[in-house]
Amino acid sequence: MSHYWRRRLLNYLLLGLCVACTAVAVFPLLSILFYVAVRGFQALSPEFFTQMPRPVGEPGGGMANAVAGTFIMVGLAALLGLPVGIMAGIYLAEYGRGRLADVIRFMTDVFTGVPSVVIGVFIYTVVVTRMGSFSALAGGLALSLIIIPLVTRTTEELLRMVPYTLREASLALGATKARTIVSVVLRSAAGGVVTGVMLAIARAAGETAPLLFTALSSRHWSLALREPMASLPVYIYTYAISPFRDWQVQAWGAALVLLLTVLGLNLVARAVTRSRYRY
């Protein structure tokens, strides 16, 4: 009988511990969300998206250039990074055998863990110094390097989850391997791949360090890819550490916009994943 009670006690003890740890993990997350939502909401207004930043002391104004800049550079990063990441993932899952593939796989994992500031410095040395100026192009390139390893690995893992029997079914109908990969494997894994892509883009959208060294920032409305470009993360950074009250409030607004963008991407990803034909 005492044995029985000891087991029950241990059971409750461990359960309690798990609940407590979950609370500890979730609490900061929820506080951040709550804090950003409350503080950011005060700064948000239609002008935030339509107006340009104003000089210190002048009330009002917005961050239209930073919102546009973030979209342009993240879009550029997606354009450059997604094909590379998805193709590399296909290679690793479907063709990669032996040492070369193992090395690539390992390097991709390492690449995922490289601090983003290192990527910023790298692009700074390789692109910015050669081009002679900070540019949106360099910023997009840096962000694409954040996206590539993430997308490569998720694509690979999701393609591997597609049952082998589906590949055989397609091949046995006389399909080529390439055709099988496109029409059956990728299609079966599409929902998951899209989710992975969205998460990678969301991650890139929030990066600050790589942009500080590459796109820098700008106080003006500029869509030129060869010139410095404003972005939300960098604006958050400069405004939040500024001594001006107005700017700090606007930094909260920018943080909320960024947060909502990421949230939106995740929701889109979830909606897309809910396919009718899923396994």
Binding site: L166, E168, A169, R187, S188, Y277
Partner: peptide, 10 residues
């Protein structure tokens, strides 16, 4: 095949 393996399509 041994196990039915329809594609996840219509």
């Amino acid at each position: 095949f041994q196990k039915p393996n329809p594609f996840p399509m219509s």
